[in-house]
Design a binder for these strands. Structure first.
Lengths: 170, 170
DNA sequence: TTGAATTTTCAAAATTTATTGAAAGATAAA
DNA sequence: TTTATCTTTCAATAAATTTTGAAAATTCAA
């Protein structure tokens, strides 16, 4: 296998993977392409290499920037925008965690908390208690997961996968 | 809000959530319904309550059983099958982690490892090195995440969210 | 055995999600 | 200004995923 071929495969694989992690295929492919590119790429280059439309390329470079997974890069004397991808895999993971938390976890926790506003508290005593306990369990699980996510977002990669790992695995 | 209404909302919310975590809406709804049901439910009851077809109910109860998120329960003297959902949210998380790892992480790691079989090692020396480093970084990140998942799968909930949490957060 | 009850399958239909491409909107050099 | 270059939007279209429902397969009591 040649290097270029391996890179192409990488872009495809990362694209497939992305769909499992809340990132659509094209968005993940563009990100993968930017990760393996030695140079910043323009929208036209991305369109050309991935064989996608201008609209699609634009939407998804934009989304990558929203997520903090890519940056705009202006080249002196060039009118066009170029894009650079986040290549540090630790940072990539942290950005995905942060963004998904904001979009999914936080809203769902608040929805689930609202469900505790039940007014027939006295009837069906035990059934009521069991339901509330389920909601509380979910919330406390989410809270712990959230704290770990917090720690990750703030932590240094080496601390997390060095110190913490040793504590956990020993 | 009445208890029954809150439960209905819970089923809907859990269904929406599921789609973000590799579980389709109906599968997540059935799971939610089984979590809040005081009694095991039959396929007919699930069809009736969620207003879905028999095929859909069958496919998704089956999927839940595959994932370890529900169990079949036979009632004495009844011909029909009944289903019971896993209600312990820690166990639910562990089963989802285990299953997704098996279906996604393991295959992707092996695909990415294969990409290292590049034969033009000497040409473009630096570019080659950078690409290999990216693949190695991803693999070592995945390895750490995997080890944490392992620990979770084997650990006791209280150890994980008690002892470990204290170590991490302090 | 037979046949009624129940479960499973899967092609077709419906729904959801992603993509296209052309037109409108910016931007900046001339 | 004007004009050419580049970016954004979004309705229409395409692709992917989920759901249906009826037929086939299975199970079990009689």
């Amino acid at each position: 296998m040649k290097l270029e071929e391996a890179k192409r495969n990488f872009v495809e694989t990362w694209g497939t993977l992305g769909t499992n992690w809340g990132i659509n295929r094209t968005m993940a492919q563009i990100h993968a392409l930017l990760m393996v590119s030695e140079q910043p790429l323009s929208t036209d280059e991305i369109m050309e290499i991935l064989d996608i439309s201008r609209g699609n390329a634009n939407m998804n470079t934009r989304a990558l920037i929203d997520w903090g997974l890519a940056e705009r890069k202006v080249k002196l004397g060039e009118r066009m925008e170029f894009f650079v991808g986040e290549k540090d895999i630790w940072k990539v993971a942290v950005k995905i965690i942060r963004e998904r938390r904001k979009r999914e976890i936080d809203p769902m926790r608040s929805t689930l908390r609202d469900l505790k506003m039940i007014d027939d508290k006295d009837e069906k005593k035990e059934e009521y208690q069991r339901f509330i306990k389920l909601l509380d369990d979910i919330d406390s699980f989410a809270d712990s997961a959230d704290k770990i996510a917090d720690k990750m977002v703030l932590a240094d990669k080496n601390w997390f996968f060095g110190t913490m790992m040793k504590l956990m695995i020993k």
